[in-house]
Simulated scan of single mutants.
Amino acid sequence: MPKLLNTALGSLRPSGIRRINALAAQRPGCIALALGEPDFGTPAPIVDAAALSLASGATHYPPNAGTPELRRALARYMAASGLAYEPDEVVVTCGATEALAATFAALLNPGDEVAILTPAFGLYESLALMNHAVPVPVDTEPHGFQIDEAALRRRISPATKAIVLCSPGNPTGCVLSTGSLDAIARLASETGIYVVCDDVYNRLVYTGGYARFAALHGELRDRIVVVDSFSKPWAMTGWRLGWVAACADVASEIAKAHQFTVSSVPAFEMPAAECALTCDPAPMLEAYRARRERVMAALRDMGLPLVEPAGAFYAFPNVGRFGLPSDAFCERAIEEAGVALVPGTCFGCEGYVRLSYCVADEDLDEGLRRLASFVARLSDKDA
């Protein structure tokens, strides 16, 4: 009889987002507004830099934490937005996913608690469980996806090791207010918990008033971890390139977890990553901005309540009035209307669905028409 496998992995559920995408793929002609993947190609200068790097022989082992040139470039890049990190406080990772995995491995001991602001990307819960820690959801839905300090404090215990925030957020697209960030800062200052900032959407902001936690509360840099990625702003999802920045003591432990998990990112990609930092993603941002306006107008016309997304490329409308679980709503939308959305249960928030507008304009417009027809049919049945 073989020994038991890792019980932490046994408790994990496969990605609900990927399940929906697979269902959509089985329905001929279905338009998927499900994945958070830019429809644009990677800008040509970045691709050219990778090709040149390969041609010049960058096919050998690089330094584990990234080339000195890229780490210096990332430090300069972050400094421009008010984040003060030295190159040796930066670790280049295989996307934000591996950055978060290495961070959790460095921070967590079995039994530690991780506060997660929900609705949230399911990766945070899964990584906590993989490290034999305890994910603790902090529900922000009653407060317009902002933080109520009293509610947050009720979810914090002596076992809390870290809190994870994502602003702009996935799935809501909401930007945490200064008041919300200040509430987290007060708690971190009092308790010493770490603040893990998933900042992968920080270049995709459409309204004023955006502030990054690490820039606003640099006095807490000894307990802040910043995670960022090339995937979203530069349409580089398949490159699997990201980075993490933290004070030297924490960064060195994250670098260990990174080294013993993946060794390094591919050598030839790092010059391309340097190039990306010099490329302006504004044209893609403006396309997303125009799509966002169309999505908000369409959802309003459908009568679906929505907290206005200020960033990222998601809308998170409330579909609770139809009396359907969000999973059933999305499954029926695929089968009956040929449009795929992600149920709110994937993010720990029932009664909502996530709509991604990082798709081609014609697909977005047709997907919105199909969704409107589906919603109208559901409304007629309720009448």
Rank of each mutant, 00 (worst) to 15 (best):
residue 382 D to V: 15
residue 158 P to T: 14
residue 338 G to L: 12
residue 40 F to R: 15
residue 104 F to C: 05
residue 319 V to A: 09
residue 38 P to G: 09
residue 318 N to R: 15
residue 182 D to R: 01
residue 64 N to D: 14
residue 188 A to H: 03
residue 258 H to M: 06
residue 159 A to D: 15
residue 195 V to K: 02
residue 9 L to N: 12
residue 351 G to V: 02
residue 318 N to E: 15
residue 166 C to K: 06
residue 120 A to K: 07
residue 15 S to N: 09
residue 138 V to M: 00
residue 78 M to E: 15
residue 313 F to Y: 13
residue 239 W to G: 10
residue 269 E to K: 15
residue 244 V to C: 11
residue 315 A to E: 03
residue 82 G to L: 14
residue 135 P to Q: 02
residue 72 R to D: 11
residue 344 G to Y: 00
residue 5 L to N: 11
residue 333 A to W: 08
residue 182 D to Y: 03
residue 100 L to Y: 06
residue 167 S to M: 03
residue 141 E to G: 09
residue 350 E to F: 01
residue 46 I to V: 15
residue 103 T to S: 15
residue 199 D to K: 08
residue 33 L to W: 10
residue 353 V to K: 02
residue 172 T to W: 00
residue 179 G to K: 00
residue 28 P to F: 08
residue 136 V to T: 01
residue 69 E to V: 02
residue 360 A to G: 06
residue 357 Y to G: 05
residue 13 R to V: 13
residue 262 V to Y: 13
residue 297 A to G: 02
residue 330 C to F: 02
residue 270 M to V: 09
residue 281 P to F: 01
residue 147 I to M: 01
residue 142 P to I: 01
residue 133 A to G: 06
residue 2 P to H: 07
residue 130 M to D: 04
residue 281 P to H: 01
residue 8 A to P: 04
residue 335 E to P: 09
residue 88 D to G: 05
residue 262 V to S: 14
residue 27 R to P: 08
residue 117 L to A: 07
residue 195 V to H: 01
residue 193 I to G: 07
residue 178 T to C: 03
residue 14 P to R: 11
residue 205 V to D: 05
residue 3 K to M: 11
residue 163 I to M: 10
residue 156 I to W: 05
residue 341 L to F: 06
residue 43 P to A: 08
residue 257 A to G: 11
residue 210 Y to Q: 04
residue 189 S to L: 08
residue 51 A to P: 00
residue 186 R to N: 00
residue 178 T to W: 03
residue 141 E to N: 12
residue 64 N to V: 09
residue 173 G to S: 01
residue 355 L to W: 00
residue 374 F to R: 07
residue 17 I to W: 09
residue 348 G to F: 10
residue 215 A to F: 08
residue 105 A to H: 06
residue 52 L to C: 07
residue 74 L to Y: 08
residue 68 P to Y: 10
residue 365 D to S: 10
residue 196 V to I: 15
residue 8 A to M: 08
residue 272 A to N: 11
residue 37 E to S: 11
residue 205 V to W: 03
residue 301 D to L: 07
residue 20 I to W: 09
residue 155 R to F: 04
residue 82 G to N: 13
residue 373 S to D: 13
residue 270 M to S: 10
